[in-house]
């Protein structure tokens, strides 16, 4: 039985349709990625699934409970880690966790046990009595991730979980999330615009654009759609017409003196390609990535650096304003 069943889920804000007739099933124990650019409707979808906003039409079942008819039951089944900081920075790390344990009705003895467990997991044991005010962005993120796990949810929602984290912490978190999903059989729904994250972490990925799913499959399967390796050639005067006649090349893109080719079995044919195309400055052969898949489906590149105003930056901006 799927842990999440989304049926015709739609959210409209006046003229804008943020989420448009979404249909999707997510299996138990799966790590599922919603991949898309800013404003694609990822966060809106998550907010509806976690009952924080009501859908305009359509519905979904989470852990067997309807998000419209039974929001309380849904909330008891889920954990959520928000994109923006959602801990209270006038409290200490420990106090934030204690508060969370109380909100989820964990009895005191068990609560203390889990706080200890979670603090160790996210490596904040030594700083648990410090005010969250004095935490770095990464520490605060870790605390909130640990907090989202503390009540052993059936489904864990992570909204851009590694935004603004350094690569080391990010790797660490990925391994941790993966381990957790496997070991505790938690289903994890993650929104991201980091291709690498979706590729490494997710069993299946839905590419979402303008509120609609444009592609849905395992990352490896999605990459197969590209139909070969990606050969990028830097060249001043490419002989495009000749290249297009080669039978094993399925796609040719020319942009700013760079030719991108999709080539079946590139290592075998590279010599011939290079002879045909002309005087080459440099060449790169690589496996297709999810970025290529994204480009293929949406006709646009996803830019990893243009996050929705970095998580930590916004805290700083907000603090300096008030």
């Amino acid at each position: 039985m799927p842990i999440i069943e989304i049926k015709n889920l739609t959210k409209k804000y006046r003229d804008i349709t943020a989420v448009d007739q979404l249909n999707l099933q997510i299996e138990e124990g799966e790590i599922f990625g919603l991949l898309g650019p800013n404003g694609a409707g990822k966060t809106t979808t998550l907010m509806m699934l976690t009952t924080l906003i009501k859908p305009s039409s359509g519905t979904a079942k989470v852990n067997g409970f309807d998000i419209v008819k039974n929001p309380d039951k849904v909330r008891s089944s889920i954990g959520m880690v928000f994109q923006d900081p959602s801990s209270d920075d006038t409290l200490t790390g420990y106090e934030n966790l204690k508060l969370h344990g109380m909100l989820y009705n964990i009895p005191p003895v068990e609560r203390e046990k889990r706080i200890k467990e979670v603090l160790e997991l996210v490596e904040l044991t030594g700083r648990k009595n410090e005010l969250v005010k004095n935490y770095s962005g990464g520490m605060r993120r870790r605390l909130e991730l640990g907090r989202g796990l503390m009540h052993y949810p059936k489904v864990l929602f992570l909204d851009e979980p590694t935004l603004g984290l350094d690569p080391q912490t990010r790797d660490h978190l990925w391994r941790y999330i993966e381990d957790l999903a496997r070991r505790m059989h938690i289903s994890v729904i993650i929104t991201t615009h980091y291709m690498e994250e979706a590729d490494m972490l997710c069993d299946r990925v839905a590419i979402i654009d303008s509120g609609k799913i444009v592609a849905l499959d395992a990352p490896s399967k999605l990459k197969e759609i590209i139909g070969g390796d990606v050969v990028t050639i830097k060249i001043k005067e490419p002989k495009i017409d000749l290249i297009k006649q080669l039978p094993y090349i399925s796609k040719v893109d020319v942009k700013d003196g760079i030719v991108s080719l999709t080539v079946a079995n590139a290592s075998e044919h590279l010599a011939e390609i290079l002879q045909t195309i002309g005087q080459v400055d440099s060449v790169e052969v690589r496996q297709p990535t999810l970025s290529d898949v994204f480009l293929h489906y949406t006709g646009r590149e996803i830019r990893e650096d243009s996050a929705e105003g970095g998580w930590a930056d916004r805290v700083i901006n907000f603090r300096s304003k008030h």
């Binding site: 924080l52 309380d72 900081p85 801990s87 920075d89």
Partner: peptide
Amino acid sequence: KKIDFLKEVLVSPVS
């Protein structure tokens, strides 16, 4: 609301 702490509370099972 501004610091999103409210979301953390509202997403909990508490009514």
